[in-house]
Design a protein around this nucleic acid. Structure first.
Length: 455
DNA sequence: CTCTATGATTAATA
DNA sequence: TATTAATCATAGAG
């Protein structure tokens, strides 16, 4: 008690001793601190010394006493002035380190992580997280190629799991950060009543805390990214586990292929239609992680068709003999369908019943390249008898098919001019025929056949 | 297991 | 950019 009054007195003395105002107080302190005292400097110095002594003595006092004194100090009329002065001093003496300028540059790595999380749909808008939602999302995402079945939804489920964890954790961190921040702020504010803490300093402190927490968040983001990467790599590996197209899908594709043998380059629309047909007709199982990674363009399903046609073309070309049977089959099929469809105006020509007769020989179609080619291969090849027979038959069928095409021949031609951007060769074939080899050197037929078949 | 069929990927090409 | 040709890697049959 006694001490307290003395302190108060002393403080008052400091203030009053100069001029009484805030300004005065400041000057007084500064003067005293720097030791530039004037005439009565010694006396003031003495005062200050007293004060310091008394302050030191506080530690020896009981809690109650300290509280009381604190209160006393807080209520002192000079307190605000002193406080600001002390803050200023503190600021000037560099006690508060001025290292708060390296915050603005947004960490590129963090940006990268953010971008990736966003791209993967982890941090993006909520899409719901459940198997049902996953299925819905899958359906929504893949427009045409809908059922990517197990793997796809599995992936989605896992992803949404990650996402959920991520969000939970993020929220937790956020909350902790806020809690901690407010706690520290309160603490500092509280302390600011007894020691010089400027609002600026508090701000800085908050900044530091936030930085700390954001670095933690970055770790979270990083590990989330890693998890996604792992998940993705696992499923991307799985992507290579190819699924064969369904029987019907290949049926449809083959049909198209063999009915457009002269120009098996489906246009975009055609591809789309084929894709639609295939995936609608059957639960055409496709592995499609791709649509997940970026907003599926819808053209993804066309990709499969393109793949298929690419493979088909190349493989057909590589070894026609091997595909003869298939060709026959589908040619016949298309012929039949054509017959069905195109009624029977020219039943003579297109009737499947009498295709061989007139048709084959009489038609030297522009796309006879195909026929010729297959012909020559057949001729050149020393197939086993049965096979030859089959070959001939197939040839016939192909012809028949060609004829059936003839019904829509003009259509086909239009198609050519429209669809084949890379010139359809005049010989009717696509690009350079495989024919040449067999044509030019039919003698070498067997060899080529063997190699083909072996291949 | 091997072997073939086949979907997917990739580098090269026009 | 679409295709080709080569290649990879698996599915499926034996």
């Amino acid at each position: 008690m006694d001490d307290q009054t003395r302190i108060m007195h002393a403080l008052g003395g400091v203030g009053l001793g100069v001029q009484g105002g805030v300004q005065g107080g400041m000057q007084g302190v500064q003067v005293a601190m720097h030791g530039h005292e004037g005439a009565d400097g010694d006396a003031r110095k003495q005062d200050i010394g007293d004060i310091l002594h008394q302050i030191m003595a506080i530690t020896d006092q009981s809690l109650d006493e300290a509280q009381a004194k604190k209160h006393g100090l807080n209520c002192h009329r000079m307190k605000p002035a002193l406080f600001s002065v002390l803050c200023e001093i503190k600021e000037k003496t560099g006690l508060s380190i001025r290292g708060a300028q390296e915050e603005d540059p947004p960490d590129p790595q963090l940006m990268r992580l953010d971008n990736m999380l966003l791209a993967e749909g982890v941090s993006g808008p909520e899409k719901g997280g459940g198997s049902a939602a996953a299925a819905a999302a899958a359906a929504a995402a893949a427009g045409g190629a809908s059922d990517n079945s197990i793997e796809h939804s599995d992936y989605r489920a896992k992803l949404s799991q990650i996402r959920q964890i991520y969000h939970t954790e993020l929220e937790k961190y956020e909350q902790a950060c806020n809690e901690f921040t407010t706690h520290v702020m309160n603490l500092l504010r509280e302390q600011s009543r007894t020691r010089p803490i400027s609002p600026k300093e508090i701000e800085r402190m908050v900044g530091i805390i936030h930085r700390k927490f954001s670095s933690i968040q970055m770790q979270l983001k990083q590990s989330t990214c890693e998890a996604v990467m792992i998940l993705r790599s696992r499923f991307l590996d799985a992507r290579r586990k190819r699924r064969n197209f369904s029987k019907q899908a290949t049926e449809i594709l083959n049909e198209y292929f063999y009915s457009h043998l002269s120009n098996p380059y489906p246009s975009e629309e055609a591809k789309e239609e084929l894709a639609k047909k295939c995936s609608i007709t059957v639960s055409q199982v496709e592995v499609a992680i791709k649509p997940l990674t970026f907003g599926s363009k819808g053209s993804t399903s066309n990709h499969y068709v393109s793949n298929w046609f690419g493979n088909k073309r190349i493989r057909y070309k590589k070894n026609i003999g091997k595909f003869q049977e298939e060709a026959n089959l589908y040619a016949a099929k298309t012929a039949v369908t054509a017959a069905h469809a195109a009624a029977v105006q020219n039943s003579q020509a297109s009737s499947p019943s009498t295709p061989n007769s007139g048709s084959s020989g009489s038609f030297s179609l522009p796309n006879s390249g195909d026929l010729f080619m297959s012909m020559s291969t057949l001729n050149g090849d020393s197939y086993p008898g049965a096979q030859v027979g089959a070959g001939v038959q197939s040839q016939v069928d192909t012809l028949r098919h060609a004829i059936s095409q003839t019904a829509g021949y003009s259509e086909a031609m239009r198609g050519h001019s429209l669809y084949s951007p890379h010139g359809l060769n005049t010989n009717g074939g696509w690009q350079d025929e495989p024919a040449p080899c067999s044509v030019t050197s039919p003698t070498e037929g067997p060899g080529s056949v063997n190699s083909d078949t072996s291949n």
